[in-house]
Design a protein around this nucleic acid. Sequence first.
DNA 1: TGGTTCACG
DNA 2: GACGTACGTGAACCAG
Length: 929
Amino acid sequence: MSSKHLYLVDGSGYIFRAYHRLPPLTNRHGTPAGAVFGFTTMLWKLINELHQSDGPTHLAVILDASSKTFRNEMYDQYKAHRPPPPEDLVPQFPLIRDAVRAFSVPCIEELGLEADDIIACYSEAALAAGWQVTIVSSDKDLMQLIRPGLDLLDTMNNRRLGREHVLEKFGVEPEALGDVLALMGDSVDNVPGVPGVGPKTASELIRTYGNLETVLASTDQIKKPKLKQSLIDHADNARLSRELVRLKCDSPLPEPLDGLELKGLPPEPLRAFLEDMGFKSLLSKIQGDGPATLPGGGPTMLALAPGAEEKPAPVVEQVPFNHKDYETVVDEAALDRWIAEGFACGRIAVDTETDSKDPVRARLVGVSLATAPGKACYIPLAHVGDGLLSETPTQIPMAVAIAKLKPLLEAPDILKIGQNIKYDMVVFERNGGIRVAPYDDTMLLSYDLDAGLGGHGMDELAKRHLDHACIEFKTVCGTGKSQISFDKVTLDVATEYAAEDADVTLRLWQRLKGRLASEAATRVYELVDRPLVPVLADMEMAGIKVDREELARLSAEFAGEAARLEALIHAEAGGPFTVGSPKQLGDILFDKMGLKGGRKGKTGVYSTDVTEMERLAGEGVAIARLVLDWRQITKLKSTYTDSLQGEINPATGRVHTCFSMAVAQTGRLSSTDPNLQNIPIRTEHGRRIRDAFVAEPGKVILSADYSQIELRLAAHMADVPALKDAFARGDDIHALTAQEVFGEVTRDTRARAKTINFSILYGISAFGLSGRLEVSRAEAQDMINRYFARFPGINHYIAATLDQVRSTGFTTTLFGRKTHLPWIKSAKQGERQSAERQAINAPIQGTSADIIKRAMVRMNPALAAAGLGDVRMLLQVHDELVFELDPGQVDAASEVIRSVMAGAAEPIVELSVPLGVEIGTGPSWGAAH
DNA sequence: TGGTTCACG
DNA sequence: GACGTACGTGAACCAG
């Protein structure tokens, strides 16, 4: 007798039952997780029963891959009236897939088949092989499969359902159940059945006449006139229903039976998942060394055989890239086919092609879609001929395509997958009013999994994960002066390039998504980075108004000032030269004028940077001060007052930056085209540029910034009582440091203390500090020693952080964001030390980034809830958020903004220091500070 | 294209 | 005893 026992979990059915049975639990992130919890508990319990009599030796979770199946071809009304899943259940579906992966259990879904059919196929195969089968479900359709060797397990009521159960409930043998179900119909699935026939009648009819066909053939014997007529009138419906409830058991198995073997339970992915979800009660079961149990469960299989912790390689289809297989979609029927395919698959990769890298200017040129590896298309929409050789090709009209794509891109049950999907969101919103949702972003998946291990652009990811070299943009559009916009690319070339992007995106998603849970990145992805995408898209589209005339006035003024300074510099130098050339300046200063100074760097040029020039200026060298002033003025002019005028979008009259989400190694955003995160403020000249960032007429600018957030986080993370108490009291933290390190608080010691505090955040060295404070190394070392003595905890934080990065290769923020630092093991001292300093800084800078991102994600809903829906968030500058609003909204908005920002860490992280938020308002950004 | 400098947090 | 020396960005400019 075979001892093999296959358990098939009806995942979809279970999810719904768990959802309705359990109270609306939320996990530690405030995300609904009741169904996930029920599911996780059930799966755990099942796995625990491995090696018990009647316990599973093989296990798989079966899910519905799509809402459309072969039954829809039989009957287009099948499941047509089924309401969409409840709103708080939808986000739990992906988490349940994560749970299955965390258990290292196969998760099987197949296009065009319902979970029930897949279960039937596996049951058939397993029984044929002499195995026992248990289906974890209490679905009546699945009860058709009951026979010797196969039963159902109803985990909700903890009972096994066999032949007796079917007899009791339906009055017939399981083999006849399909006929009963066909007569009954099913209002939920919209199986028609025969009107007026319920379970009782159906059962009696089958018992009396044997099967459906004999019932339909024997209507003349039926006494009740209404029933008789109904059976006659709806015989066809009954036959259709019979086919609809029949389970398809002859499809090939997506995974061979042996692939479902249940091995132990690798604890790490599971631990990561449970921690991530905050399932403390379950987590406590796997902590400690003793055999863990669940209430009512047996011992877990956490004690693994040696080597068993090796994670099996994820099963990902390896389909070769064949660009000729991509389809160019130029007629509506083909588009309809692709859209239907997207609905059937449940998820689809999407990419847009446009005529500009700037999404706020870009016009949509085409859309590419991918539904499976190698299966992708390009839908050209605005391609034109080149005016010489080619003519404008026939394409689907833009409005028609948009109208057809919109339902797919906005369908709440269809996942849209993009690479840097923020770009596509902005393009779709502006070119068709489409709000893409729900979505995944492969760039962000990579960023949250692999920050520090390389870039996250598609070409690089394709190389790294798929060993595939993408067609480069420049080979399609050229480069430099001869570059053409994408709408001039011929359709065949455009299709190969664009469809490949969607294809690659889908394949990357398959590789990356499954790693989230097992590598503990779900939290930061789902609760921080992914939800931030539409928030940033809105900010980019909103832009900020700048006063062009004011910038022009400043440019003219700075030009005059620069010319004046340049003349003075040339006079001092004894002749004209290019002041902006560090090489020429160095030669003038240190060779021609004979000033003291040293060579620096490999290139052999003299250093003329700000510290060197300040040193000379301090020694009374007149030209040094003039050069510094000249540099500041020309910098401000070229980078800001000149360039910014050209960045004003003619259509909106505003400046629209682009926020990059996957550049900074620590989790911070960055800003480009133009960079609005480095607008001057520190000098008087610079501040005037910030004054040119103004509110629209009738509005005001509000700026809210975290006060000393990184130092507060350091106090919390390093657990420094003196610092935490000072922050709790609202003391001047630099004065406190001055008191502790120098014994007195003066203007000078406070300034030095401030420098020391920053040094700590950056990974201090005595040499570096000595340079900045202009004291000897010994004195600097002395200050550091006193700092560590007065603030115990800092030392320990540094040591513990370095320990962690050396053993795991990455640091983590309080929210679990990773920064990988592979150089930590470098043989070169310099590289290694650099990585060590990064390791000390990354958790602090990264936690700060996580917190403000969470504030941003929560901001618009909070404002809307307070009736402040038209307050617009415009910019983020690392610890500052900038808004534009009506003057009358300032007081109410300030309170909402303050409370969202101050509470942004909660409830995931409870900080032992308060987060201070300072708010200012005014007609301009400069005035709001 | 790489190096240098400097604007911001 | 020598080594190299503060974290994270982006943009403009010069020079090869």
